[in-house]
């Protein structure tokens, strides 16, 4: 599975945002570069049907607040993930409903998994309901951090700037989330990588 479409900030993103203060049409460069990735993240968390409003609001918010964007604090990509995550919080019930559906049916069957991952997916299949339930049981702020790592592949530092929280808080929320997930799944499960668990 491809997890990241953009490994790092595009060169010159910050300049584009600055330039868009003068010519607001230039903001479309940012939109073109990040729409796919942000849509993917929001659709994963809220489901494809409910993603539209939040994705639109993410880019409109970014556009309106572009005067407040500080390139020394975060890349444009991280800034957009922060805005999207804050907006997703207002759709708590939709997120829980989506998680219940994912636990029952799995992700959208239209999209085939990559060939080499099929066997892993089959063995993970039985864990799906418990993982979904465990994620739904997490505190919202712990889930945000866990998913920014797992789905968006942001570093601790990037998550700290995206959410405006201290660096250390990222680590503590992440390890609490992983601890709860492990507890639900059972320590003995061979699918769980103990080294990864200790990484947070």
């Amino acid at each position: 599975m491809t997890t990241v479409s953009w490994a790092g900030p595009l060169a010159g993103d910050a300049e584009v945002v600055r330039g868009s203060l003068v010519e607001s049409e230039r903001f479309s460069v940012i939109f073109d570069a990040y729409f796919g990735e942000i849509h993917r993240y929001v659709a994963q968390r809220l489901g494809a049907d409910s993603a539209e409003d939040v994705v639109a609001e993410t880019f409109l918010t970014a556009f309106r607040k572009r005067t407040r964007y500080d390139p020394s604090r975060a890349s444009v990509r991280v800034w957009l993930y922060g805005i999207a995550t804050n907006l997703i919080r207002r759709h708590h019930r939709t997120e829980l409903r989506t998680l219940r559906a994912l636990g029952r049916h799995g992700p959208d069957p239209d999209v085939p998994g990559h060939e080499d991952e099929v066997s892993a997916q089959v063995s993970a299949q039985s864990l799906r309901p418990s993982i979904a339930a465990a994620l739904a049981g997490l505190h919202q702020r712990d889930r945000d951090v866990l998913l920014l790592v797992a789905l968006a592949d942001l570093s601790h530092e990037e998550i700290a700037s995206a959410l405006g929280i201290p660096y250390g808080t990222v680590g503590s929320r992440l390890s609490r989330a992983r601890r709860k997930l492990r507890a639900v799944l059972g320590e003995s499960n061979p699918m769980l990588d103990p080294e990864e668990a200790g990484r947070g």
């Binding site: 599975m1 491809t2 997890t3 939109f31 729409f35 796919g36 849509h39 993917r40 659709a43 994963q44 968390r45 494809a48 993603a51 539209e52 994705v55 639109a56 880019f59 994912l102 636990g103 799995g106 992700p107 959208d108 239209d110 999209v111 998994g113 991952e117 892993a120 997916q121 993970a124 864990l127 799906r128 993982i131 979904a132 994620l135 866990l146 998913l147 790592v149 797992a150 789905l151 992983r178 997930l181 492990r182 699918m191 769980l192 990588d193 990864e196 668990a197």
Partner: peptide, 22 residues
């Protein structure tokens, strides 16, 4: 564990029509 989470969420289909609207 993150891999299990990613598998749960899967890969949503791109939505070019939505991109045009937004």
């Amino acid at each position: 564990m993150d891999e299990l989470v990613r598998e749960l969420y899967g890969e949503p289909a791109p939505d070019p029509a939505l991109k045009t609207r937004v």
